[in-house]
Simulated scan of single mutants.
Amino acid sequence: MVVFTGLAIGVGYAVGGRVAKADLNHPISKWYDRAPLLGAAVGGVAVWIVVRVIDSELSPLTIAAVIVLGALVGTGVGWLAALATRRKARTQIPVPAIVAAAVGGSVLAEVSWILYQTLITKVEWPSAKLRIPFPQIDVVSGSALQIGGVTIQRSAIFTVGALVVCAAGLWYFVNRTRMGRGMQAVSQDPDTARLMGINVDRIIVVAFALGAVLAAIAGVSQGLQNTNIEFRMGFLAGLKAFTAAVLGGIGNIYGAVVGGLVLGVVEAMATQYIPGQFGGSTWKDAWAFVILILVLVFRPQGLLGARVVDRA
């Protein structure tokens, strides 16, 4: 509800600000110049909130009356705000702009509340506390394969295959394409890269999009491994991804791959070969962060070395 109210105030203020700018041909740039419009929007929304607290179900006639009352109260509040800040104000906001802000705030608050109620009551939302089954694909998530005396899950094969394809594709993109070389240039010196004709903003967008694509592939892989998804399943995976990046070397693509593989091997070996109360699957996550601490203490640049940019 706070989001919708904030949206109503913001749009109501924008409507009033547009009127004020059109009338006076003067931009509004200080908080005391905005005070009348903000006061008008807040006053109109406050009336609507009070009426809603008194009676949550309103008829269309009552809604129209609330909008009119909110416009009147909001105009009064905006006028008082203008009087309180007129000594510092650099521009004068006309009454039509204040009325527009009050009416806009009231109308948008009511419309937003109706949409909010409709979305909450009419749409069947999944519960965030329940585990949702992840879609299964026979080729990827079917029965396990038996190779000699080793049992290999098909989801694990998919994960390794996705790793090889993504790593090879990322290497080719970064080192062999024009966009990838531009990305390397931007990472070294964005100002010089911009002078060389590289569109830095586009490079940044592509980098974020590429990261989202790789994260989506990792999410699908983890969903196939767990067979169920929940809201907190990515938290520990994100911590381990950071650990793998530090283990391999921050900024080093190949180091991240090696760090992830080393981390997985260490967890598997710790689970199988460490005896006593510190062994077993319950301690595999703890051993992963022990490796992170050791790397940070004895080799903070990572196994393959962090990527360092040489500047003239």
Rank of each mutant, 00 (worst) to 15 (best):
L236R: 15
R307H: 13
L61N: 05
L304D: 00
A97M: 07
A237V: 13
T62H: 09
V200Y: 10
L115M: 07
R131A: 06
A102F: 09
S155C: 04
P275T: 14
G104N: 05
P96W: 04
Q277G: 03
S143E: 07
W287D: 02
Y32W: 15
V258D: 00
G6T: 09
W171M: 00
L236S: 13
T62N: 06
V213Q: 07
R307K: 15
F158A: 12
F208L: 04
A245T: 11
N228L: 01
A286W: 12
A167E: 01
A84Q: 09
A216D: 06
R87Y: 12
L145S: 10
S112W: 04
I147N: 03
A306T: 12
T271Y: 08
P27Q: 10
R299H: 02
F134Q: 01
E57G: 03
A215K: 12
R52D: 11
F134I: 02
A288F: 04
V99R: 08
Y172W: 12
I157C: 07
L210F: 06
V51T: 14
S106N: 02
T75W: 13
L236E: 04
L130Q: 05
A35L: 04
L263E: 01
L119C: 09
A193G: 08
R299D: 00
W171D: 00
A156P: 06
T192R: 11
V111M: 04
Y32G: 00
Y172N: 02
G180K: 13
T5P: 00
A209M: 03
A46Q: 01
V266C: 07
P126Q: 09
G211H: 02
R52Y: 15
V45A: 07
K88F: 11
S29V: 13
V3S: 06
A14Y: 15
K129S: 13
M179T: 15
P36Q: 02
V42E: 03
G43L: 05
Y172I: 08
Q277E: 02
A156M: 07
L163P: 03
I114P: 00
A46R: 05
V290F: 12
F278R: 14
G251H: 10
G302K: 12
G197D: 02
V123W: 12
